[in-house]
Design a binder for these strands. Structure first.
Lengths: 150, 150
DNA sequence: GCTTGTTAGTTACAAAATCAACTATTATCC
DNA sequence: GGATAATAGTTGATTTTGTAACTAACAAGC
């Protein structure tokens, strides 16, 4: 049954619209992994992101994390507060610039990071396995470019 | 200055982790477009998504929109209420199943849709122009697969 | 037909994100 | 050196989202 006064099938295809596609793929891909850090550690998305950045880079300020991950400073601030409260990270005032703090994972924080990282790697592998090596390399390259990470 | 007790540079690279990359690219790509529907029409993300689905398909129920766009029914419900309040869409009780309503854009809603669609197309073209035709076709295909849209 | 279960959609309440204003510290410029 | 602007980070108020419970309509089993 087709409508007469409304476009039943517009020529524009949302299924090919990049912002939409990116959003759907991002949504879908974060869903499964979210279950892990949420159910197992009661963490929020921003929190594991902060944790990962510190796990990878070893010592950063809140500002640096926010810039790299495109997370607003208030979100970072609250995530850091929560991670500090759980003793996953320590904050040390930077004596060169006493406005900022150097953040670093504690032993406990590193342990959590390592476990989540392992799961993340497996997950990444499973996703990439849907494509050939060349394809997934190209995909990562294109996403980095779209994200302005070049 | 390198830290001794913490991994200064982990072998894991967040810059290649697909869920992260997807999220960054999605975030980045929605930012510019968001300015348009937010500043010009005071719309939220869910709202333009609902608007687009109706613009494309002509008549849908809230449930159908939610399924296609992976939006939770409460979010759809609120977006529909807001769009109806602004007279961008009308709701007609389905006489075959009086629980659900058929949603359709008004003339005003269609006008807004057409304008936003035009901007969306331009924007999509600019993004795709960063790659060859073959590359962007492949990108869309891979994103659809990752989004579980196949 | 009536009890039980399901479904479409809404609403109330709790959690989280956004925005604006704030403190403390550092940088600039005269 | 002192006023002014800029920066790192926090906090409180508002907005938006998520979760659960709810209403209304339909479906199935008996």
């Amino acid at each position: 049954m087709t409508e007469s006064n409304l476009p039943e099938n517009d020529d524009f295809d949302l299924r090919n619209f990049l912002p939409f596609l990116l959003n759907q793929a991002a949504e879908q891909s974060s869903l499964e992994f979210q279950q892990v850090y949420k159910n197992r550690y009661g963490m929020l998305r921003t929190e594991w992101r902060v944790l990962f950045h510190l796990g990878i880079h070893g010592e950063m300020t809140a500002k640096e994390i926010g810039e790299r991950a495109l997370i607003h400073k208030t979100k970072v601030s609250r995530a850091v507060a929560k991670l500090a409260h759980r003793r996953y990270l320590t904050r040390t005032r930077d004596e060169n610039d006493r406005r900022s703090e150097k953040l670093a994972l504690t032993t406990a924080g590193q342990a959590v990071y390592r476990e989540l990282r392992g799961i993340a790697e497996e997950y990444d592998d499973r996703m990439a396995a849907q494509f050939t090596r060349g394809e997934s390399a190209l995909l990562r390259m294109m996403l980095r470019r779209l994200a302005g990470m070049d």
